[in-house]
Simulated assay, not measured.
Amino acid sequence: MAASDIEAAISPERVTMRKRTTTVSLAALATLVLTGCSSTTTVHPTPIPRAESTVQAVDVDHLPELNAPATCSGYVALTFDDGPTQVTKDLLDILGHYDVPAAFFNLGLQEKKMPELVERQIREGHQVGNHTMTHPELLTIPLDEALDDIDAATVVHRDLVDHSYTLFRPPYGGTNQEIRKGAEERNMTEVLWTVDSKDYEAASAEQVIEQSQGMTDGGILLMHDGKPPTVEALPQIIRSYYDQGLCFGQVTTVDEELPSNMGTTHRARATEQEAKP
Rank of each mutant, 00 (worst) to 15 (best):
L32R: 11
T22W: 11
K19Q: 15
A77H: 04
T175L: 07
E210V: 09
N67M: 10
A205Q: 00
T264Q: 08
D162Y: 10
P235V: 13
R158H: 14
M1R: 09
T166Y: 06
M215W: 01
P142K: 06
A270K: 01
P101V: 12
E116L: 00
H62S: 15
P171C: 07
Q121S: 05
I179T: 09
A203W: 08
G174D: 07
P170W: 04
A70P: 02
L92W: 00
E52N: 14
A28Y: 03
I179L: 14
G83M: 08
K19V: 11
R239H: 15
T79E: 10
Q213G: 01
N261Y: 15
A8E: 13
T79L: 09
G83T: 09
E256Y: 06
P136D: 13
S204H: 06
E7W: 11
T88V: 00
H44G: 12
A77Y: 04
K181G: 13
P142Q: 05
R267W: 00
E257Q: 08
G263N: 00
D5C: 07
V24Y: 08
V191H: 07
G249C: 01
E178H: 10
L192H: 10
T216V: 02
N106P: 00
D225L: 03
E185N: 07
F80P: 12
L246Q: 00
L222N: 09
Y75N: 06
V58I: 02
T230V: 11
T54D: 10
